[in-house]
Write a protein that binds this DNA or RNA. Structure first.
Length: 169
DNA sequence: CCCTGATTCGC
DNA sequence: GCGAATCAGG
């Protein structure tokens, strides 16, 4: 797989939202977390608030002497942070699989249809006819799709409105 | 052990 | 430019 514009854009977005490299990798599909990290660095948006450790020398991979002048740029974070946080605040959430409290019919799941790869975000009153699970594709080991994972694991505050609308509990 | 990102370097 | 292998750490 290659890095077309869409994939790069999605990478930037997810990275900016704080998803891990492996999660982004599985979400993009057909790619490893190493690829994601590599791309992230090449794009220059690495180092999310991390104290740059003491430049690790690293031994030769094969046997090459590799004469390096012991001098590297090494981002110290903020460049990328600014880029990631500045632009999108919460405008159009893209063609998100789940918008607000509505989940496409074809995607909805009953308890029977749930698998490891389907979002288990409950919608509606359990036991009632209208109840269903989101059914979107899950992120990495998580039980939710990206949309609902963000709701479930809200790092900061102020998101209660969304949770209510989504029909949690 | 599971995971995280960071770095190097053969391709 | 890409990403596996590796490193360093949580």
């Amino acid at each position: 797989m290659s890095w077309n514009d869409e994939r790069v854009e999605l990478l930037k977005r997810l990275w900016g939202e704080g998803l891990s490299a492996s999660q982004i990798a599985t979400e993009l599909g057909g790619i490893t977390r190493n690829a994601v990290i590599g791309k992230v660095h090449r794009l220059g948006l690495s180092g999310r608030v991390k104290a740059a450790g003491p430049a690790r020398p690293r031994k030769a991979q094969t046997e090459a002497p590799a004469p390096r002048p012991a001098s590297r740029p090494a981002f110290s974070g903020n460049t990328a942070l600014a880029q990631a946080l500045e632009p999108v605040v919460e405008q159009a959430p893209r063609p998100a699989p789940v918008a607000g409290n509505v989940v496409p019919m074809g995607q909805r799941c009953t308890i029977m249809n749930l698998t490891e790869a389907t979002c288990r975000w409950p919608v509606g009153e359990p036991g009632t006819e209208s109840f269903y699970f989101c059914g979107g594709r899950t992120v990495s080991g998580l039980p939710y799709c990206t949309h609902h994972a963000r709701m479930a694991y809200q790092p900061s505050q102020d998101r209660r409105r969304d949770r209510r609308l989504a029909g949690i509990r």
